[in-house]
């Protein structure tokens, strides 16, 4: 894995063609996805979890919530490398270099390309 680069904080979307490979895993009970991979800009590793919303009543018997349908398309993740990138505003909730990118979600059962 490449060395982390302390780039200036910039909120840019990176080009999908040059993004390093990321893994998308669905939790065993199917309620959330875990995306992990390196930031295309600063090469810091970022792991983010995207859960299926559980607010509101469940549909099943006694409000039991069936496993949600699999997600298709892309997951947008942003850099949370944790390094103190210069020029990051203090008010920013970001914990990375500001980059964000789309990670395609693999077909259920299919392997990540």
């Amino acid at each position: 894995m490449a060395e982390h680069r302390l780039t200036h904080f910039r909120e840019v979307q990176t080009d999908p063609a040059t993004n390093p490979a990321a893994t998308v895993e669905r939790s065993p009970d199917g309620r959330w996805y875990t995306v992990s991979g390196a930031c295309p800009t600063c090469h810091g590793r970022t792991v983010s979890r995207v859960a299926h919303g559980v607010l509101g009543p469940g549909k099943g018997l006694w409000g039991a919530r069936p496993s949600p349908p699999p997600l298709t398309g892309v997951l947008t993740v942003y850099c949370m490398c944790g390094f103190p990138h210069p020029a990051r505003p203090d008010s920013s909730p970001d914990t990375g270099c500001g980059a964000f990118w789309d990670v395609p979600v693999p077909d259920p059962g299919g392997a990540q390309p």
Partner: peptide, 11 residues
């Protein structure tokens, strides 16, 4: 092109 809103929604 940066779709900054997409990042805000992700956040």
């Amino acid at each position: 092109m940066s779709d900054l809103q997409k990042k805000r929604l992700a956040q």
